[in-house]
């Protein structure tokens, strides 16, 4: 089986043609121009993940931009958003500070992307 997709690893956006076996398992990929594209294609067919970015309210009323320290499973994005929207971050904050540990049991933290 062939699955077509666009690589989202970098702004080049390579068009990938992924070959899957009869069980839907990753076999090979064509169209990528770098090694990361192959990793992406494999992930995308087994466990698609995305880096989630958002912003949270701080105790001083300002908004703080945050991101997940690593990509989280795509199907958990909305669940993670619910958790992120409950956060009230304590100031002062430095970019890189952990704001919430292990969001939705993903082993991924939410970290600040700016300082306030």
């Amino acid at each position: 089986m062939i699955r077509n997709m666009t690589c989202i690893v970098c702004p080049m956006g390579c068009t990938l043609e992924v070959t899957l076996d009869e069980n839907g398992k990753f076999v090979s990929v064509a169209g990528n121009t770098c090694k990361r594209g192959e990793v992406y294609a494999n992930n995308e067919c087994t466990n698609p993940v995305r880096t989630l970015t958002s912003s949270v309210r701080c105790d001083n009323g300002e908004m703080l931009s945050v991101k997940t320290s690593e990509a989280v499973p795509k199907e958990k994005l909305f669940e993670c958003m619910e958790e992120i929207n409950k956060i009230i971050a304590k100031t002062p904050v430095t970019a890189g500070d952990c704001i919430l540990k292990n969001i939705c049991n993903t082993n991924v933290d939410v970290i600040a992307t700016r300082s306030i």
């Binding site: 666009t6 690589c7 989202i8 970098c10 068009t15 995305r50 795509k74």
Partner: peptide, 11 residues
């Protein structure tokens, strides 16, 4: 960008 159509719309 193609990647934004994929990750912002198709997703």
């Amino acid at each position: 960008l193609a990647r934004n159509i994929e990750q912002c719309l198709n997703d």
